[in-house]
Amino acid sequence: MACITQADVSDHFSKKLEDVRSKLFIQALGDLYATEVELKQAHKDAIKSIKDTCSKKCKDDEIMFEKIQAYKDEMQQKSLPAKEREAEIAETLSEIQDKEKQKEAMIRNIQKLTEEQARKKQLMIAQNKANKDKLKNLNKAKQVFQERLGLEIRKLHGEKLQFVFRNISHKDPDSVYTFLLRIDEEGSYEVISCDPPLECMSHLEHRLKQTNNFSAFLANVRKEFSALTKS
């Protein structure tokens, strides 16, 4: 049987981890681009909706003013009693007031829509930045652990990452210790499973969310796996 050297194992893991890093990086760029396109399209649709609404309101106002002018011309041509003219004027003024109220309500709605679009834009920008930072932390952690500790990272279905540790047990270096991780919709790390189970995993996950130090998290997980072999 051919002898497998430590260098061969290291090269093998280095190549696999580099493939994972490249896939994660390409996917992250695709996600960021898709998010930017979505944001631009949403902003464009909102502006178009505002323009269409304002254009319709201007046309309605023009029609109303033409109607008022027609009323005035008609009243000038007819010899109506003063009370009847006053009633028509009062009715016309009431319609104008109603239109003004509708216009004010529409302006408030447009302002609210504009502010909501700006808020969503800021949230998306902040989320994109947070995802970039997390990807950067993952890359740093990957470099350290692939060089020193024989870590393998596998991308699974559903945007999940499996972290595979070897060289934990001196008696059986090929023994596998794993945990499954994902980043939720709010950009927070979430450990889904751990094999073999670690009682302190929930505590380590909580610390990761507080510090955002992924390298320290991986080091602590490996330390706990190593402790299992000594118990």
Rank of each mutant, 00 (worst) to 15 (best):
Arg148Trp: 10
Lys67Ser: 15
Glu159Arg: 13
Glu159Lys: 14
Gln27Cys: 04
Cys58Gln: 13
Ala42Asn: 05
Cys200Ile: 08
Leu39Met: 05
His43Ser: 08
Lys209Glu: 12
Leu156Arg: 15
Ser215Trp: 00
Ile107Gln: 14
Arg21Glu: 13
Glu84Ile: 07
Leu204Pro: 02
Ser14Asp: 12
Lys59Gly: 08
Leu198Pro: 02
Leu17Gly: 08
Phe145Met: 10
Leu161Trp: 11
Ala90Tyr: 05
Gln146Leu: 06
Glu66Asp: 15
Leu208Gly: 03
Lys120Pro: 01
Tyr71Thr: 08
His12Ser: 14
Asn212Ile: 03
Lys155Phe: 11
Gln122Gly: 03
Met124Ser: 06
Ala118Glu: 05
Ile68Cys: 10
Phe13Pro: 04
Lys99Phe: 13
Tyr71Asn: 11
Ala46Thr: 07
Ile96Val: 13
Lys209Gln: 14
His206Lys: 13
Ile50Asn: 14
Thr178Glu: 08
Ile107Asn: 10
Ile125Leu: 07
Lys132Glu: 09
Ala34Ser: 09
Lys209Gly: 09
Ile125Cys: 02
Arg222Pro: 01
Glu190Arg: 12
Glu84Val: 08
Ala87Gly: 01
Met106Asn: 04
Glu36Tyr: 06
Cys3Trp: 13
Gln6His: 10
Arg222Asp: 04
Pro173Asp: 02
Phe217Leu: 00
Asp174Cys: 07
Lys112Pro: 02
Leu39His: 06
Asn137Tyr: 01
Gln76Cys: 09
Phe145Thr: 01
Lys23Tyr: 07
Ala141Trp: 01
Glu84Tyr: 06
Lys209Met: 06
Gln143Asp: 08
Lys83Cys: 07
Lys83His: 06
Lys51Pro: 03
Glu115Ala: 15
Lys99Trp: 12
Glu159Thr: 12
Gly158Ser: 00
Ala141Asn: 02
Ser175Trp: 04
Leu29Ile: 05
Cys194Trp: 03
Glu95Val: 09
Asn137Phe: 03
